[in-house]
C-alpha cells in the first residue's frame, strides 16, 4: 500500500508543506478536542463524587480568547494558501506552450512543432510548461497529482495551467471533472523527460507541419485570406476586413465604442461569432464559422495569427 505521492514539480513540495502545516494544526486541535472529551468523560462522569466546585459565571473572556485565537490561525493559513495559489497559476512569460483539447473521452495534445499525441503529454524537466486548454464538448479537468495541479477545461474558453517538472518519470493524468459515461477512462500519462531526451522525442515524432505553418494553410483553405491581410504580402488588403498583422496582443476599437484586448479568446470568438464584436469602421459582413472549424484547427489558426504579431500593423 503506497501512502506517499511523488513530488515531481517545483511547486509540489510547496503544496506538500502547506498540507503538512494544515495537518499539524488539525492534529493539535484534534488532540485538544479528543483529549478534553476523554478527560471530562472520566473526571466528570456522573458516578464520580469529586467536588466540581462552583461554575464560573462570566465566560465572555474565554469566548473572546478562543475566537481571536481561531481567527489568527485561520488568517495565517488563508494567507499561506492564497500566496501559493497565485504562484501556482501565474505562468512565467518564457514558458513552453503546449495546446490541449479535451473531448469525451480523450485528451488531444498538440506541440508547437506540430507533434500530436493522445492521452499522453511529453514535457521537458527544468523548464516551465504552459498548457493552453479547451474542450470540444463538456467541462473536463486536467489534473496531474504528481505536480499537485489541476484546472477545469471549458468549451468556448482557453484556460491555462502551468508547471515546471523536476523529476523525470511517468505520472498519472486524470480528468477530474465528471464528463459523462467514460469519465473514468479519460486518463493518460504525463512523461517528464530530460531536455535532451525531449528534443530527441520531438524530432522522432516530428509533425508534418508546425502549428503556425498548418495555420497558414488553413487560413487559405477556409477562405480567410480572401478578405484579411496576413503577412507582409499575403491576403486581401484592408478594405473589406481589418488586417491581422500586429493584431495579437493589441487593443482593438469596436463599433460600439468599447475596446477589447486581442487575446486567444477574442480571436476565437471573432472566427466563430464575428457579428458579436464588430471592429470599428468595418461592416458586419464576415460569416460565422461556428460548427465548421474544429478546436484543433482553431488552435492552429490562432497560432498563425499570433505569429503575425511581430509583423507590425500595416
Amino acid at each position: 500500500m503506497t501512502l506517499t505521492l511523488t513530488s515531481a514539480s517545483v511547486h509540489s513540495a510547496e503544496v506538500d508543506a502547506l498540507l503538512a502545516g494544515l495537518l499539524l494544526m488539525s492534529l493539535a486541535v484534534l488532540a485538544l478536542v479528543f483529549g478534553l472529551i476523554w478527560t471530562y468523560a472520566i473526571r466528570y462522569r456522573a458516578g464520580n463524587t469529586e467536588d466540581r466546585g462552583a461554575i464560573g459565571q462570566k465566560s465572555w473572556r474565554i469566548e473572546i480568547g478562543w475566537t481571536v485565537a481561531t481567527l489568527v490561525v485561520f488568517f495565517a493559513l488563508f494567507v499561506w494558501g492564497a500566496d501559493l495559489y497565485v504562484r501556482l497559476y501565474t505562468a512565467p512569460g518564457n514558458a513552453l506552450k503546449i495546446y490541449v483539447v479535451g473531448k469525451q473521452w480523450m485528451w488531444k495534445v498538440e506541440h508547437e512543432g506540430g507533434q500530436r499525441e493522445i492521452n499522453a503529454l511529453h514535457v521537458p524537466v527544468g523548464r516551465p510548461v504552459q498548457l493552453i486548454m479547451t474542450s470540444e464538448d463538456v467541462i473536463h479537468d486536467f489534473s496531474i497529482p504528481a505536480f499537485r495541479i489541476k484546472h477545469d477545461v471549458l468549451p468556448g474558453r482557453y484556460e491555462q495551467l502551468w508547471f515546471n517538472a523536476q523529476t523525470p518519470g511517468s505520472y498519472h493524468l486524470f480528468c477530474t471533472q465528471f464528463c459523462g459515461t467514460d469519465h473514468a477512462a479519460m486518463i493518460g500519462e504525463v512523461v517528464a523527460m530530460q531536455q535532451a531526451d525531449y528534443a530527441r522525442w520531438l524530432t522522432q515524432n516530428g509533425g508534418s507541419d508546425t502549428l503556425v505553418a498548418a495555420g497558414r494553410d488553413l487560413f487559405t483553405r477556409y477562405g480567410c485570406s480572401g478578405c484579411h491581410q496576413a503577412g507582409p504580402t499575403g491576403g486581401g488588403g484592408t478594405v473589406r476586413a481589418p488586417s491581422l498583422n500586429g493584431l495579437y496582443g493589441s487593443p482593438v476599437p469596436l463599433a460600439d465604442g468599447t475596446t477589447v484586448f486581442a487575446d486567444d479568446k477574442y480571436i476565437r470568438d471573432s472566427i466563430l461569432l464575428p457579428a458579436d464584436q464588430i471592429v470599428a469602421s468595418y461592416a458586419p459582413v464576415m460569416p460565422s464559422f461556428s460548427g465548421q472549424i474544429g478546436e484543433d484547427d482553431l488552435i492552429k489558426l490562432i497560432a498563425f495569427i499570433k505569429s503575425l504579431a511581430a509583423e507590425g500593423p500595416s
Binding site: E14, L18, L19, L22, G81, L84, Y85, L88, R148, T176
Partner: peptide, 10 residues
Amino acid sequence: ALGADVHLTQ
C-alpha cells in the same frame, strides 16, 4: 486554503 485545494479538490 487555496494552494491546498488545487491538489485536493475533485
